[in-house]
Write a protein that binds this DNA or RNA. Structure first.
Lengths: 187, 187
DNA sequence: TTAATGGTATACATATCTGTGTACTTTAGA
DNA sequence: TCTAAAGTACACAGATATGTATACCATTAA
């Protein structure tokens, strides 16, 4: 077995291409070409493009949340500060050159039916992010951690949209100020 | 000239299909079939699918903002109340059976480059909505109408995402409570 | 050595995509 | 009523989509 399996190569390239160019706009041929694998290999690992999309979204969820947690916890140590550091972490994300919005919001746009498996993975991702924010709120001693998590999450979602659609790289700064209001109310 | 021009028929059907199924996933053949026009007619009115997408987004902007303004002003008369009524208006939208998120957020997902004309119309739409909220904030006598508009807008964007990705039909209620905090701070 | 595994390359089947071309028909206004 | 514009129907071109089939190659383990 090589260090990086063919499967990982495929998912990794699909991740980049789907994120930058969209799901329907990215063909299988492009993915195998840039991943450097044959079409047969791709269809050995995934029964269909849809299955690859699903695997890609799951991988993105894993990578994104790990990174969000790592960054947030690197930027601040005290639990109260970490709720605020969350906004700095997403701010750094907005300023990455490859930033192209939230892949799950994007996927939800293309797979719009709420019963679509791809759409459902997106909803699951959002729930997991909110769960993480809730855990931070608990550690910070919020009166109602779930409520605070819902509020902060909603602000962050708004900031993501603002950053992507309008290209406002400072969306996280405003979001942070707004988040501070609710954090102060909740502690 | 008929009451409804062929052009309007085409845009109207494209609006529905693009909104429900996405832009790349909706083919020209489907549009002309459901609009009941020939392909030649479509290409007489629009030089390309991209041009139709652009016209469709412009139409949607017009319809959406007109409706938002009408609803908001119908639901409340006093300027201060109208800032809050905004959230009721979007709440009603979330609960429409055909609700499929914000068409401009969806379009931004598929046309991700910020220099893409379709993407630019989305950014323009968002600016115009914010302008409207700002005008409400001015009428309500907010200290900093632009700041308040930015805040309320960000909350609404978050609610739209929450409503669409996770199917949370009550997103507008939470958003309204959050908006109230900033309205009270700003008046 | 041999057989299985997993890979490549490539042609192919089938469908659908956008966009054009042709020939006929409808419609509306002078 | 005649003419011009606008429409329909439909074939078609060329590109691209997903997915399959065939033939061959490299590695590895029995």
């Amino acid at each position: 077995m090589p260090a990086v399996s063919k499967r990982e190569q495929i998912v990794s390239q699909a991740l980049t291409l789907f994120y930058q160019n969209g799901f329907n706009a990215t063909g299988i041929d492009r993915i195998i070409k840039e991943a450097g694998v044959s079409k047969k290999t791709l269809y050995n690992h995934f029964r269909s493009k849809d299955e690859l999309v699903l695997a890609t979204l799951r991988k993105r969820d894993e990578l994104f949340r790990n990174n969000l947690m790592r960054e947030t916890e690197r930027l601040a140590l005290a639990p109260q500060d970490r709720l605020l550091a969350l906004f700095d972490a997403v701010g750094n994300w907005f300023n990455e050159v490859s930033f192209s919005g939230c892949m799950f919001i994007n996927a939800s746009a293309e797979f719009s039916g709420s019963d679509n498996p791809n759409h459902m993975v997106c909803a699951e991702h959002k729930r997991l992010v909110r769960d993480y924010i809730k855990s931070l709120a608990e550690q910070a001693g919020a009166k109602d951690p779930e409520e605070l998590a819902n509020q902060l999450n909603m602000i962050i979602e708004g900031a993501i949209v603002n950053a992507h659609v309008e290209g406002n790289k400072d969306a996280a700064k405003r979001a942070k100020k707004m988040g501070e209001v609710f954090i102060n109310l909740a502690l």
